[in-house]
């Protein structure tokens, strides 16, 4: 069996970035909050760029707990969806421009979400990474950590359970 020549690095990047961008753009609320994603291989880091409208306590000032919760939930959902379409992106079956993940899966639905507020969110950019701890046929459990200046000093973390999306076209 002969091995295929490795794909050019730019083609790989372009395909992965196109899929990620399509996934993130399919969530209007992520855009409203100013959330974007950095990617290294399959590892995602969510970034919530600071904006005045994210403030919850103007006297401190501090980020709103609801903005923090939403940031963590968006990160968890995108990570979970990303992990579900990753294999498909990698097969390269969808051509050089990559695939639109939203044509393959629906968004996972949140069953419950528990946020742990560890310190107040400062009026500056925030970062988050999610880890899919269990990804079953029907349910998934995802943990998320968020920080600002120091990766080791989390300002919030969360755990959520999600209903696995049905694959479009398969029942």
């Amino acid at each position: 069996m002969s091995r295929r020549p490795p794909e050019p690095v730019q083609a790989v990047k372009k395909r992965r970035d196109a899929a990620l961008s399509a996934l993130v753009q399919s969530v209007p609320y992520a855009g409203f909050l100013g959330i974007s994603f950095d990617r290294r291989g399959d590892e995602l880091t969510a970034v919530m760029s600071f904006d005045e409208k994210l403030i919850g306590n103007p006297f401190l000032p501090a980020l709103h707990g609801g903005a923090t919760a939403a940031f963590l939930e968006v990160t968890a959902i995108i990570e979970l969806a990303w992990s579900l379409v990753w294999e498909e992106i990698e097969t390269g079956l969808h051509g050089a421009d990559g695939m639109d993940p939203m044509r393959v899966i629906q968004m996972p639905k949140t069953i419950d979400f528990t946020v742990d507020y560890l310190r107040s969110g400062l009026p500056r950019d925030a970062y988050a990474r999610a880890r899919v701890n269990r990804s079953g046929r029907r349910y998934a459990s995802v943990h998320v950590e968020a920080w600002q200046d120091n990766r080791a000093r989390l300002f919030a973390q969360a755990t959520g359970h999600f209903l696995m999306p049905r694959r479009i076209g398969k029942d």
Partner: peptide, 20 residues
């Protein structure tokens, strides 16, 4: 505030903000 344009359902995060 929508989470999924296919359903037009509001994002859980927006409900979280309201609850909080």
């Amino acid at each position: 505030f929508v989470g999924d344009p296919q359903t037009e359902v509001i994002h859980g995060g927006a409900v979280s903000a309201l609850m909080d």
